[in-house]
């Protein structure tokens, strides 16, 4: 039995400290966001953690105006798919960028969103 290269819990613990982590397949080089047991490209079972710089550009975005109950107080808020410069993409909440400034292709930079209970999610702010 081998431990997974990186669990979702470990990803978010590192993210809370400001560090985005991905995993790279030792066999074919595929880069992936954890957790993942098999490489989706070659099905090898040999991942290595790699640090991501956190820099990327907006691939698509939306402004949520009708929210689930837990987020109702935040509206309007923006969510974007961000393509990181290493090639993988992540969904994140946009922070500290005026909604009217959002465009596809806008450079952004990762920042952790840390709730009162320390639950962490992915955010992106100005580059």
């Amino acid at each position: 039995m081998t431990e997974p290269a990186i669990t979702a819990r470990a990803f978010f613990e590192k993210a809370r400290a400001g560090q985005l982590t991905a995993i790279r397949c030792s066999s074919c080089g595929e880069l992936s966001i954890p957790p993942r047991e098999l490489c989706p490209n070659c099905h090898a079972q040999s991942w290595q953690p790699v640090m991501l710089a956190g820099d990327g550009t907006i691939a698509s975005f939306t402004v949520i105006r009708v929210a689930p109950r837990a987020h109702a107080a935040d509206v309007p808020y923006a969510i974007a798919v961000v393509q990181l410069k290493e090639g993988v993409s992540l969904l994140g909440r946009i922070v500290d960028i005026p909604l009217e400034k959002l465009v596809v292709g806008l450079p952004v930079r990762f920042r952790p969103l840390i709730a009162k209970d320390l639950a962490t999610s992915v955010g992106f702010g100005p580059a």
Binding site: A8, I64, V66, A70, I79, V122
Partner: peptide, 10 residues
């Protein structure tokens, strides 16, 4: 990964 961001189906 997604629900905590406040993602909805729209």
């Amino acid at each position: 990964w997604e629900q905590p961001l406040g993602l909805t189906f729209p």
